[in-house]
Computed example of a mutant assay.
Amino acid sequence: MNVDSETDYIAALIELHRGLKRQGPGDDEFSRHLLQELAAYLPVNPRIADLGCGSGAASLLLANDYHSRVLAVDLSAEFIAELSTRAQAAGLADFITPINADMADLNWPNESIDLLWSEGAAYQLGFENALTRWRPLIRSGGIAVISEMSWFIDDAPPPAQTYWQTAYPTMANELDNMARAKRAGFHVLITRRLPSAAWWANYYEPLKIRIQQLNSESSLAPVLRETEQEMALFAQYSDHYGYTFYVLQAC
């Protein structure tokens, strides 16, 4: 595999994350605490979408907790196939609809979703652009839970700034992201920062093992080294940035 093109780079990232429970940082108990805080805002059987679902960590949690149908969307056919297998194994296949599609171009009826969930995927469209595109899908008063890379301080150390200016140039602080959400048609109910321990336990440690398995694949070397650089940076500067979960109500 040659990673000279964007298509090859994405394919390398998919290969790196193949077989992992998560394709990004997250934590089931953290998510369940958020859902408990949302009980008053959602119907008993909410209509749910999980956008950029990967292999389905959040989709499985939502289906299990609500016993409602979850529309699980990802552009990667590989991850959608993994989700289907995992849903069958968990006895949740009847509650999950895996959809191999572009989350930026969903031909769904307006106001057809009560709870829109998306972990670590909105950045692919840009946070405000993603919210603007998704807002019409959510009923008035419905909820969106979106995790987004965010600066926790305004003056982050230069190594962190340099890395993320290249990796994610539009990454913003939490206040700016809340303003973006408001412009997109949402009221901000809650913000919660994903603890750094969850990054390591649920994402980076499994990813380290996967990197060791793939180290002999020389064609993947650029992606593997970049991922190792990301982990080393987070080990130093996790107090300065990370994932914030923005819990939003559609106005």
Results as ranks from 00 to 15, higher is better:
residue 5 S to F: 08
residue 6 E to W: 15
residue 7 T to C: 10
residue 12 A to N: 05
residue 15 E to M: 09
residue 16 L to P: 05
residue 17 H to V: 02
residue 19 G to V: 01
residue 19 G to H: 02
residue 21 K to V: 01
residue 22 R to I: 00
residue 23 Q to A: 06
residue 26 G to S: 06
residue 28 D to T: 15
residue 29 E to R: 14
residue 30 F to S: 14
residue 31 S to P: 15
residue 32 R to L: 04
residue 38 L to D: 09
residue 41 Y to A: 06
residue 43 P to E: 02
residue 43 P to A: 02
residue 45 N to T: 07
residue 48 I to P: 13
residue 55 S to C: 05
residue 56 G to W: 01
residue 57 A to T: 03
residue 58 A to S: 11
residue 58 A to M: 04
residue 62 L to H: 09
residue 63 A to W: 05
residue 63 A to P: 09
residue 69 R to P: 10
residue 69 R to F: 06
residue 70 V to A: 03
residue 74 D to T: 05
residue 74 D to S: 05
residue 76 S to E: 00
residue 78 E to C: 05
residue 78 E to I: 04
residue 79 F to E: 00
residue 82 E to Q: 10
residue 83 L to C: 04
residue 86 R to Y: 01
residue 91 G to H: 03
residue 96 I to R: 03
residue 96 I to C: 07
residue 98 P to C: 01
residue 99 I to K: 03
residue 102 D to C: 06
residue 103 M to I: 04
residue 105 D to F: 08
residue 105 D to S: 08
residue 106 L to N: 06
residue 107 N to V: 03
residue 111 E to T: 11
residue 116 L to D: 08
residue 117 W to T: 03
residue 118 S to E: 00
residue 119 E to Q: 13
residue 120 G to K: 03
residue 120 G to D: 02
residue 122 A to W: 01
residue 122 A to S: 11
residue 122 A to H: 04
residue 122 A to E: 04
residue 127 F to R: 10
residue 127 F to E: 03
residue 128 E to D: 13
residue 129 N to A: 11
residue 130 A to M: 08
residue 131 L to H: 12
residue 134 W to H: 09
residue 139 R to P: 00
residue 141 G to L: 07
residue 141 G to R: 09
residue 145 V to H: 07
residue 145 V to G: 09
residue 148 E to V: 11
residue 150 S to H: 01
residue 151 W to E: 11
residue 153 I to Y: 07
residue 154 D to C: 11
residue 154 D to M: 09
residue 154 D to W: 15
residue 158 P to H: 04
residue 159 P to Q: 08
residue 161 Q to G: 14
residue 163 Y to I: 03
residue 166 T to F: 04
residue 169 P to N: 10
residue 175 L to Y: 02
residue 175 L to H: 10
residue 178 M to K: 13
residue 179 A to W: 07
residue 180 R to D: 00
residue 180 R to I: 05
residue 181 A to D: 09
residue 182 K to I: 09
residue 184 A to F: 14
residue 184 A to G: 14
residue 186 F to S: 04
residue 188 V to C: 13
residue 193 R to W: 01
residue 196 S to C: 10
residue 198 A to L: 12
residue 200 W to V: 12
residue 200 W to L: 11
residue 204 Y to N: 11
residue 205 E to P: 01
residue 207 L to S: 06
residue 208 K to I: 00
residue 209 I to P: 00
residue 210 R to Y: 00
residue 215 N to R: 15
residue 216 S to F: 14
residue 218 S to F: 13
residue 219 S to P: 02
residue 222 P to N: 13
residue 224 L to G: 12
residue 225 R to S: 14
residue 225 R to E: 07
residue 226 E to Q: 14
residue 228 E to Q: 15
residue 231 M to H: 13
residue 233 L to V: 11
residue 238 S to K: 14
residue 239 D to W: 04
residue 240 H to S: 12
residue 241 Y to E: 12
residue 242 G to L: 02
residue 243 Y to E: 01
residue 245 F to T: 12
residue 246 Y to M: 09
residue 247 V to D: 03
residue 249 Q to H: 14
